[in-house]
């Protein structure tokens, strides 16, 4: 059973193509990551699938209901937590959850009971009576997440749920998402953090310029960059040239040299053979090295390879904080 299907979605804002032939299939009970830089169309995709924005072209279903023609049915089955904490800042945390519970159709008593359960679960009981505009960023995000879980959603949309959060709050959000998935909820997660996609998502779609440019598990995406790498850290900077020449000869490819870290990296097909060959050649040449090993490519390298740009997360880890 598929939880989300999107076929050829196009969304134009004037001359801008926010989505340009966006396709996506998300299996029920999985966490699917949409990974891409700012402006790639991740948020527009979420807004379209959650009935907030109309698509210009294409078709999408969520839980089997058509997003365009059956929006009521879709809204009854989804939860949405946006980039900014969409809670009422002038009310207390508890008042917020009771309000949203009532609007999900819970009776007053049930809404209050559910609010207390969620406050407890998200470690907000102590702040329950305080106005939300006095909450920290992490507390708001947790409250926002709690609000999307008042009645357990079949599909939860998380639009950059941990952008701007400190590591502790980020881990709390991740834990909450994992426990929800354990109960059977499907999650569509957008993120510009490779680590987040790696940690949470079963499948990752890399989004660039309004469409999915690659899809697979983190491992599959990594192996699309070819195989493993042999990495040599030279002891002396003066040896770098010799080490690079040696790797070029043994591995048959042009290695990358990083002078700052005295690191030489070459892509290889068979990592065990390459490792022993390189070790033997280094000893025969009498080159002293600090370290020698093999590793998989990182998602950062995958991203750079697929989109031609590094992720924002490598350069501007704090940039989202300024938008509020």
């Amino acid at each position: 059973m598929t939880a989300i299907v999107a076929e050829g979605i196009r969304k134009r804002y004037g001359d801008t193509r926010a989505l340009d032939g966006f396709d996506l299939t998300v299996r029920e009970g999985t966490v699917h990551g949409l990974l891409g830089p700012n402006g790639a169309g991740k948020t527009t995709a979420v807004r379209t699938l959650t009935t907030l924005a109309r698509m210009t072209e294409g078709r999408a279903t969520v839980c089997g209901f058509d997003v365009a023609s059956q929006p009521d049915e879709v809204r009854a089955r989804i939860g949405l937590t946006g980039q900014y904490a969409a809670v009422d800042e002038f009310l207390s945390g508890r008042q917020n959850l009771v309000l949203f519970g009532r609007l999900f159709g819970l009776r007053p008593r049930a809404a209050r009971r559910r609010a207390d359960e969620l406050l407890e679960r998200f470690d907000l009981t102590g702040a329950a009576g305080r106005r939300v505009d006095g909450y920290s960023g992490g507390m708001r995000r947790r409250l926002d997440l709690a609000a999307s879980m008042i009645v357990v959603p079949r599909v939860l949309f998380l639009d950059e749920p941990t952008t701007g959060l400190d590591p502790r709050s980020r881990n709390q959000v991740w834990e909450a998402v994992r426990s929800l998935v354990a109960e059977g909820t499907t999650v569509l997660l957008t993120t510009q953090y490779l680590e987040e996609a790696d940690q949470l998502a079963d499948l990752i779609s890399v989004v660039d310029a309004g469409r999915v440019v690659a899809e697979g598990t983190a491992d599959q995406l990594k192996s699309r960059l070819g195989g493993d790498r042999v990495e040599v850290v030279a002891r002396e900077a003066a040896d770098l040239g010799a080490v690079a020449a040696l790797l070029r000869r043994v591995c048959g490819v042009e290695p990358e040299v990083d002078h700052e870290t005295r690191r030489v990296v070459a892509e290889v097909d068979d990592r065990v053979r390459a490792l022993t060959d390189v070790a033997g050649a280094l000893r025969a040449a009498g080159l002293a090295v600090e370290d020698l090993g093999t590793r998989r490519p990182t998602l950062d390298e995958v991203f750079l390879h697929l989109t031609g740009r590094p992720t924002d997360d490598a350069t501007h880890p704090e940039r989202e904080g300024a938008t509020a």
């Binding site: 907030l52 949405l80 946006g82 969409a86 809670v87 949203f100 609007l103 999900f104 609000a147």
Partner: peptide, 9 residues
């Protein structure tokens, strides 16, 4: 974004 939350409910 409060309106967005309401509109998604």
């Amino acid at each position: 974004g409060v309106v967005d939350r309401f509109r998604s409910m």
